[in-house]
Simulated assay, not measured.
Amino acid sequence: MADDQSLITILEDSREIRDLLTETLQHEGFDTLSFARATEFERNMRGLKPDVCIIDLGLPDRDGLSVVNTVASNSGAAVLIISGRSNTQDKIVGLELGADDYITKPFEIAEVVARVKALLRRKAPKAEATLSKIVRFNGWTADLEQHLLTSDDGKVERLSFAEGQVLRVFLSKPNRLITRDQILDDLSNGESDNFDRTIDVRISRLRAKLHDDPNNPKVIKTIYGAGYIFIAQVG
C-alpha cells in the first residue's frame, strides 16, 4: 500500500479514464483529486501540494503542454503525462517543459501505478543521504523540500521537481566529476530512460536560475566527454 500522505491529482477530460485512474490509485492507498478541465485544475492547485500530477495533453479548454509547464515551474510535484500523442517529438517537448515521465494511450493501468510509485520513490530522500533539506552554497540557500532557491539579497527562484533533483545530486557531490551515467542512475533508478533525453535541458535551466553564464559557467562546469563538476562551497 502507498503512503496515505501521498496526493495524486488527475487532469483528464475522459470520464471513463479519469474514473479508472481515480479508483485504481485509491485502491492502492493514494489520496486523489480529479479534474476534467485545466481551468478547474489550476484554480484548485493554488491550495494543494500534490506529490504527483497526472496530466492529459488533449484537454477541451487548453493545451495540456502549457499546464505541464505551469505545474513544473510553480510546484514541487512530479508530472506524469498520459496522452494519445505518441510521436517522439511530443514526448520530448513534454519532457523539456518539465514532465518527469510520459505514457501513451492506450495504457495498462498497472503500468500507470508502477510509474506513479517510481516517481514517489524518486521524490523520497535516499536512506543513505545526509544532505540537509536546507543547504547553503555560493551565496544561495536551497530549500530542497520546497524546491526554492534564495539568493543572499533575497531574490527567490522556484525550481521544478526535475531541476530540484539535479541540484540535489550536484550538492551531494560538490567539486568532483559526476558522469552522465551517475546522474541518470541517481535520478531514474533505472526505471525510465525519459530523463536521458532532456538532461542537458534541465541542467541548462538550472544554470540559468543560478545565474551561471552558459558561455563561461563558474558553477556547473561541463567536462566534455566525461560529465559535470559542481563548483561550490557547500555548508
Results as ranks from 00 to 15, higher is better:
M1F: 06
A2L: 02
D4W: 10
L7I: 04
I10P: 13
L11R: 12
I17T: 15
L21V: 05
E23W: 06
T24Y: 11
Q26R: 10
F35I: 03
A36S: 09
A36I: 00
T39V: 07
E42F: 09
R43C: 08
N44D: 12
L48T: 13
L48D: 06
P50R: 13
P50H: 11
D51Y: 03
V52E: 08
C53S: 15
G58A: 04
L59N: 06
P60R: 01
R62V: 09
V71P: 12
N74C: 04
A77L: 05
V79C: 14
V79M: 14
I82P: 13
R85Y: 12
N87D: 15
N87C: 00
T88L: 15
T88R: 14
Q89E: 15
D90Y: 13
K91Y: 04
L95S: 07
D100K: 00
I103E: 07
T104R: 04
F107C: 12
F107S: 10
I109P: 14
I109G: 11
A110T: 05
E111T: 11
V112Q: 06
V112L: 07
A114M: 11
R115G: 05
K117L: 06
A118E: 14
K123E: 12
K123D: 05
P125Y: 04
K126E: 10
A127I: 06
A127F: 04
E128S: 14
A129W: 07
A129Q: 13
T130N: 15
T130Q: 15
F137C: 10
N138H: 02
T141D: 12
A142Y: 09
D143V: 10
L144R: 11
L149Q: 12
R158Y: 00
S160F: 01
E163A: 07
V166I: 13
V166T: 00
L167Q: 05
R168A: 15
R168M: 12
V169F: 13
L171V: 10
Q182G: 02
D185C: 01
N189H: 09
S192Q: 03
S192F: 01
N194S: 11
I199S: 04
R202N: 07
I203H: 00
S204Y: 07
L206N: 10
K209C: 08
H211I: 08
P214Y: 02
P217F: 12
K218P: 00
V219R: 06
G227D: 05
G227Q: 06
I229Q: 09
V234N: 02
